[in-house]
Design a protein around this nucleic acid. Structure first.
Lengths: 334, 334
DNA sequence: CTGAAAGCGCTTACAG
DNA sequence: CTGAAAGCGCTTACAG
């Protein structure tokens, strides 16, 4: 059994109230001598206040919950890392769950998190598998932020996907491309939809139309990107450029094009999305769009744990992207 | 304020003890009618037992802590995902922390985790930045498992790195290579050390010696792999094959070789480690060693949460690897 | 089968 | 500046 506050009180010869006050380290006035005694006792007994008891009395678990589709997809842990960084700086810890895009798993994760009385909850991903029981959230005083998903009910932090898609479109148009294939993420991904919308806006502004057979689903995986690219290239009028909604799919596209004996960027230009670390080390180096996943996390936590403790009205933040031009789009001849 | 057990008791017209018993869902005998009333009240009030209170009385937080160097490196979240899967199946949740290989951060993470009274603790990574206060662990009854790090004090789950390295060595020898460069992970990485040891054993068995200038540090990153490869190739007698201790470094190596106008595998053979999803989609497709990070996590949790609740003596598990032969090693002509 | 009561380890008015 | 006591929301012997 670890030492409790009573043990420390006995050891120091003071009341538990006093121990509590020095252990918590607030600015409650304590006699210098008393404080020293208590500190010594804490040290001697290796006392570490029980977080559950603290949470219970203070009505604050100091826990923030994170729910993401799948923590084994690098994008989510990176956001979570951002969340962790600001959370720990504020004395919170993160409890994370994967839903696998399954509503059932999502529901039980949320339940477990609410049972643990998380002070804040971040829901990552544009899917709709997570449904939040708003009555309970209010009762528990749990602040919520959605990352990458649109809603008015809660605060949101989102990537400027449409703007980025538009920028990619304009870039490719400027390079002379008029037929641009789009490798989409999985069905229902709002991020992918928005990127496509941006691309189409750019094309429309240039008077170029975009057909539905110029879009193929790639499921956000290398394999999906590979297959989608083959489908795109086997159309009656294959595109001269491909925009993949993620770098992982772009890597699949690169393999597919290579296997079809097509050179990138000479025969087909390629642009990805995310700017994962290895994008720079592909050959040709991948032109892509950089988004700071870490930043999404820090911004989100900033919204939740702003220190006031007062629930505010939902806020909506947007995180900028930055296009990184390397070799695969053909803008830079190698 | 969310409904408490008293609210439910009042609503159902029974004692809190009774509510506790039906809410906990054990096999404690309860009258059918009473049970129905309580269940109805729980439903009506949307009662969800407070996890902190439960934890406090039951002396079990139902929390497992995970400490890893950096959750933004995909390898760790994947292990963590394995941990999560078995943890949630057993009614636990995971609290995760990144240390950035900084002893200070590690210390405060461990402290925070112990304060939360985690029932179990998994320490991931071969580094030594994490030091565990054994006295406290015993007092708290916290079970510990180290993933990827050798120790007798706690249970461990480790990858058969040396065996894998040896297998790679033999494979490369069989292909005729006599000079094999090794791209190592960061300094002090036991995984990297073990893989190198295995490689050297294979070489030694074949009567081939391996010099220290045939090893270059690559820090487990693409950039590190790139630079290390250049250094290796600039030696007086450049290797005919390169074994990188991670796929990410292998990708850097691939770029470096390409930039040096060297063809893989014709001029230089290349083997990675990890078998990340995109290894198959590189061109040439990467020959590598597959390790199930997810499995490391499930095995580790299996050791901790075995349901007996009784602390056992440390157990030591080893997880097999599997060499995946693709194009980059030259075994399969493309 | 059901309930009253003590207790888990803290915090925090309240009184002095 | 210090302490006694109530209370946070549960569980669990113990008694009936």
């Amino acid at each position: 059994m670890p030492a409790t506050i009573r043990d420390v009180a006995a050891e120091a010869g003071v009341s538990v109230a006093t121990v509590s006050r020095v252990a918590s380290g607030g600015d409650y006035p304590i006699g210098a001598e008393t404080k020293a005694k208590v500190l010594a006792a804490i040290e001697r007994l290796n006392y570490r206040p029980n977080g559950m008891a603290k949470g219970l009395t203070q009505r604050n678990s100091r826990l923030v919950g994170v729910v993401a589709p799948d923590m084994s997809n690098p994008y989510y842990p990176e956001i979570t890392r951002g969340i962790e960084d600001v959370a720990t700086a504020r004395g919170y810890q993160v409890l994370s769950c994967s839903t696998d895009r399954d509503p059932g798993r999502a529901r039980s994760s949320i339940d477990a998190l609410l049972a643990k009385r998380v002070a804040a909850l971040a829901v990552i991903g544009g899917g709709d598998e997570v449904v939040l029981p708003d009555g309970d959230l209010e009762a528990y005083g749990t602040e919520v932020v959605m990352i990458g998903r649109a809603t008015r009910r809660f605060s949101t932090v989102r990537v400027e996907n449409a703007e980025a898609g538009q920028e990619v479109g304009r870039h490719l148009l400027a390079l002379g491309h008029r037929s641009i294939g789009f490798v989409a993420g999985h069905r229902g991904s709002s991020a992918s939809d928005e990127r496509l919308r941006g691309l189409r806006r750019a094309l429309k502004d240039a008077g170029v139309e975009h057909r539905s057979d110029q879009v193929a689903n790639g499921d956000y995986t290398e394999a999906g990107g590979y297959d989608a690219t083959r489908r795109l290239m086997h159309a009656s009028a294959p595109p001269s450029a491909i925009f993949a909604a993620s770098d992982r799919m772009a890597i699949g596209a690169l393999a597919a094009l290579r296997d079809m004996q097509l050179r990138v960027p000479d025969d087909v230009a390629l642009v990805g999305f995310d700017d994962i670390p290895m994008a720079e080390y592909l050959r040709p180096a991948l032109t892509t769009v950089s988004v700071s996943a870490h930043r999404l996390g820090t911004e989100a936590m900033g919204l939740l744990l702003d220190g006031t403790g007062r629930p505010r009205r939902p806020q909506h933040l947007r995180v900028r992207t930055r296009m990184v031009i390397r070799e695969s789009c053909g803008a830079r001849r190698t």
